[in-house]
């Protein structure tokens, strides 16, 4: 119960920071995707099911806050969460570099998915330019802060996911 409450608070808090205070972590116009980081964290530490629910909850907030069609961010994060959860079972996820790489790849995958859906909705979307100029830098930045964020998350959820091992 405590674990679920903490999970909701952290996910909603991250989504709120991401949607209402993007300038807080913005560098050169690039903002890290905190919800995606949580999706990857829970995919590694708690499995793909928790990760998908994290993506669903965070995605709802992102969709509503960005006034996008409901489901746009949810679908991308859920798919990424499932994929990362499945992949992480076959990886040695103890090394920080692996987690950083995983977050970067997950960010790129989520960005590509998001841009493709946007392209289907609005065919005049500049897909390549968006991926190159927005998705890749954002994924890189998200990956850069991953070790610190995972350290904090481990402090919060470490004992709850102790059975499955610490993420960092």
């Amino acid at each position: 119960m405590v674990r679920n409450v903490l999970w909701v608070i952290v996910v909603v808090g991250a989504a709120l920071v991401h949607t209402t205070w993007p300038d807080f972590l913005k560098i050169q116009g690039v903002t890290p995707d905190l919800v995606l980081m949580l999706v990857v964290y829970f995919a590694i530490s708690a499995g793909e099911e928790r990760s998908m629910f994290t993506g669903a909850l965070g995605g709802i907030y992102q969709d509503v806050a960005s006034k996008a069609v409901l489901g746009h961010n949810i679908l991308c994060l859920v798919i990424v969460g499932y994929a990362v959860g499945r992949v992480s079972t076959r990886l040695v996820t103890g090394h920080p570099a692996v987690k950083v790489g995983l977050v970067f790849l997950a960010g790129v995958a989520q960005g590509i998915l998001y841009t493709c859906i946007a392209y289907i909705q609005y065919p005049d979307t500049a897909v390549i330019k968006t991926i190159v100029s927005a998705v890749v830098p954002a994924s890189f930045y998200t990956a850069l802060i991953t070790p610190f964020a995972f350290l904090v998350l481990d402090r919060i959820f470490g004992e709850h996911y102790h059975a499955q091992g610490s993420v960092t």
Binding site: G47, E48, E49, M52, F53, G55, A56, G59, I60, V64, K67, A68, V69, L70, G71, H72, I74, L75, V78, I79, Y82, G85, I117, Q121
Partner: peptide, 29 residues
């Protein structure tokens, strides 16, 4: 996990296809 993925994906796709940005759910959320 797969069932959850399928359910969430289906709901998201349905929402995307129907464009529920102005629906009651959207307003409530």
């Amino acid at each position: 996990a797969e069932v959850t993925l399928a359910t969430l994906s289906f709901l998201s796709l349905a929402s995307l296809l129907s464009g529920t940005s102005s629906s009651i759910i959207q307003r409530g959320l």
